[in-house]
């Protein structure tokens, strides 16, 4: 909403990583509007449930369309919008809980279809809105209010997961660098196929990872974040997988499939093969003669 709505009931905590992600998305939309000469209303934001999904209501400036749906189902909704309206630019916003837990079953099919949407995943390693439960990206052994004796499972390695499922663009970003993140999201939106940008977006209340990500020389913590090395070949899937498995959090394009053919193009090819009949012709085929 551009104008502040006094009756709107949701706020992010001060310092939440999601502020930076929101800014980056606004910038990416503005850049796209300039480049494509299309109104921001050509964009649809499909939001999941959780702190991150509320981004759809908090966009400032020119407003995109939005749909704030149900937990875990951002991709199927985005699939319906993009299949029915290939002219629209569709962006999913969801968190690690929504996307990688309840919604994980939908990543594989969309990767195989190469659905031409961009998913921006705000990874804070915790269920924030329900006040601090462990999430798929919470590390093994972490104590949260739902894992009082430490988390039993290991952490889902999101980037490796996306690569293994065949996602054709995999980016990794950080909410604390919104301009760089905006550029990464722009590249993801321009990619002809399924793009996921996994964003480190810390939860200051339940899982403050700023020190871990940015490092703190005073505390003797080395930063986990580093830029994807210049010599990384993002078109090389094996290199991408190797990079994903290395320690630390690389920021940039991890993988971009060369020659990616988006779903809508394949559908056009199928449509060219079909000889559509009108409802009248279809009905006539049942006439008793």
């Amino acid at each position: 909403m551009t104008n502040k709505n006094p009756e709107y009931d949701f706020k992010w905590c001060p310092g939440c990583g999601d502020f930076g992600v929101r800014r980056a998305i606004e910038w990416a939309f503005k850049d796209r509007a300039v480049k494509t000469q299309q109104s921001v209303e050509n964009n649809v934001v499909v939001a999941g449930i959780g702190c991150s999904g509320n981004l759809v209501h908090l966009v400032e400036g020119p407003q995109p369309y939005g749909i704030h749906g149900i937990h875990g189902r951002t991709l199927p909704i985005a699939f319906g919008i993009k299949l029915g309206r290939p002219d629209l630019n569709v962006v999913v916003v969801a968190g690690d809980g929504d996307f990688l837990s309840i919604g994980a079953e939908h990543i594989g099919p969309q990767a195989q279809r190469n659905l031409n949407v961009t998913a921006v995943i705000m990874d804070n390693g915790v269920y924030g809105l329900t006040k601090g439960q462990s999430s798929p990206t919470t590390s093994f052994g972490t104590v949260t209010n739902s894992t009082p004796f430490g988390k039993i499972e290991g952490k889902v390695k999101a980037i490796e997961h996306f690569l293994a499922l065949g996602v054709s663009f995999v980016g990794s970003g950080f909410s604390g660098k919104p301009r760089e993140l905006a550029n990464l999201i722009t590249k993801a939106m321009e990619h002809p196929g399924f793009a996921i940008v996994q964003v480190q977006s810390p939860c200051v209340t339940y899982n403050d990872t700023y020190d871990y990500l940015k490092g703190d020389p005073k505390k003797g913590i080395a930063p986990a974040l580093y830029d994807v090395p210049k010599n990384h070949d993002a078109s090389d899937w094996d290199a991408a997988f190797k990079l994903a498995r290395a320690p630390g959090v690389p920021i940039g394009i991890i993988y971009q499939a060369p020659g990616s053919v988006p779903m809508e193009k394949r559908i056009d090819e199928i449509k060219a093969k079909a000889k559509p009949q009108s409802p009248q012709e279809l009905l006539d085929a049942y006439v008793i003669r």
Partner: peptide, 20 residues
């Protein structure tokens, strides 16, 4: 979508704008 009148179709209870 694509035409005038951007709003959020909202599954949370909402006001006239579609805001939660």
């Amino acid at each position: 979508p694509g035409g005038p009148g951007a709003y959020v179709a909202n599954g949370s209870e909402h006001d006239e704008f579609g805001d939660t």
